[in-house]
């Protein structure tokens, strides 16, 4: 039994400690966000946050997660109440097939949390590990810039 905390909730998982987080998220916790793309840490489709930092869940064994916080796409918002990054992606219609998008959203989330004023080239470099085959890149970039703006204004209003 390994205990992992996902989107704030602890879960007891009966899987070998070396099991990659991806399979536990998808099959045990029935969370669809993280996707299998390569299982090799090459494409970013499986990206989730661990302690608010992006990781490839396909090469992250659950044994290393005790006492750490895992956040998945589902932890950012719901269909009725999407989070700011999700909202920005929807507003920009930043998806074609959408298979890469959950990983993109998670990486973008981490970027915005750690560098809310990232420049265009910083955004592109930070997003480099995540692959998209449909060619949705320009919209994803637009969505990230929009989310940055929204979250900044939000925090300003919050401060008021």
């Amino acid at each position: 039994m390994t205990t992992i905390t996902v989107n704030g909730k602890p879960h007891q998982v009966d899987a070998a400690p070396s099991t990659p987080l991806l399979y536990v998220l998808r099959n045990d916790l029935k969370l669809n966000g993280a996707k299998f793309g390569c299982g090799l840490g090459q494409c970013g489709a499986c990206t989730v946050l661990v302690d608010r930092q992006p990781v490839y869940s396909c090469v992250t064994p659950i044994s290393v997660l005790e006492g750490r916080q895992v956040t998945t796409l589902e932890g950012l918002g719901t269909p009725d109440n999407p989070g700011p990054v999700q909202r920005a992606f929807i507003a920009e219609q930043a998806a074609q097939c959408g298979y890469c998008i959950p990983g993109m959203v998670m990486r973008a989330q981490a970027l915005i949390e750690h560098k809310p004023r990232a420049s265009e080239s910083e955004i592109r470099d930070y997003m480099a590990p995540s692959l998209c085959r449909c060619g949705t890149h320009m919209r994803i970039l637009r969505a990230i810039r929009r989310a940055m703006k929204d979250m900044r204004t939000a925090s300003v209003e919050g401060a008021r």
Binding site: T2, P17, S18, L40, V59, P61, I62, S63, V64
Partner: peptide
């Protein structure tokens, strides 16, 4: 290894980390 490692629940078990993170 996968079957046996880290049954201890040791989060710093190098072998378990190797199997899960490196062996693919």
């Amino acid at each position: 290894l996968q079957a046996t490692t880290g049954k201890s629940g040791n989060t710093n078990d190098g072998a378990a980390i190797f199997v899960g993170a490196c062996a693919s």
